[in-house]
């Protein structure tokens, strides 16, 4: 049965390859950069999209523990002096090739931090877990006018894994 299934699948695959559109692929190839932050236990983490590196002096994105009542909650902080932010709750990260219209951006970057309406890291006091948002975020860098799409894949015990790619204007 398993062999039969494999045979059918292979035939379907051959059929698909045979019917493939041979025209030039005009899809956009984006360079996706994956980042694993430092551990919050060792202090806040700061990242610069332009230099594609950790940078405590000039940063666009930061992972910080912020005081909330008697606790400290992990939060993604964007530097509002350097970055504007937009959110796409519908499209998948991989399907997005262009940024949203300029009116979609907000200078109030706190909306992606802890407790914000579009918070990236959410602590559930029901399940006692920190989860990441399934939305794709856009960072517009004021100084360079570049747009980056960002997706936060995982949070685990003080470390965040995210990926981002520069979009065409």
């Amino acid at each position: 049965m398993k062999n039969l299934t494999q045979l059918v699948l292979m035939m379907m695959l051959l059929l698909c390859v045979a019917c493939e559109d041979t025209k030039d692929d005009d899809s956009v190839t984006l360079t996706v950069i994956e980042v694993i932050t430092g551990d919050l236990d060792d202090g806040s983490y700061y990242y610069n999209f332009t230099s594609e590196s950790e940078d405590t002096a000039s940063w666009h994105l930061s992972l910080q523990n912020i005081a909330v009542g008697n606790y400290y909650m992990p939060s993604i902080v964007l530097d509002s002096t350097k970055v504007m932010v937009a959110v796409d709750t519908v499209n998948a990260f991989s399907d997005i090739t262009t940024g949203p219209s300029s009116s979609a951006y907000s200078s109030s970057t706190s909306l992606v931090g802890y407790g914000g309406t579009q918070e990236i890291l959410n602590y559930s006091f029901t399940t006692h877990t920190v989860s990441t948002s399934t939305s794709t975020y856009f960072a517009y860098i004021l100084a360079t006018h570049k747009v980056y799409k960002l997706y936060f894949e995982e949070y685990s015990a003080g470390i965040v894994k995210f990926k981002y790619a520069e979009l065409s204007q």
Binding site: L40, N65, A67, N70, Y71, Y72, M73, P74, A157, G158
Partner: peptide, 11 residues
Amino acid sequence: FIDWNHVQFGY
């Protein structure tokens, strides 16, 4: 008797 630092959430 607990004596525990929750490093992640800072308490």
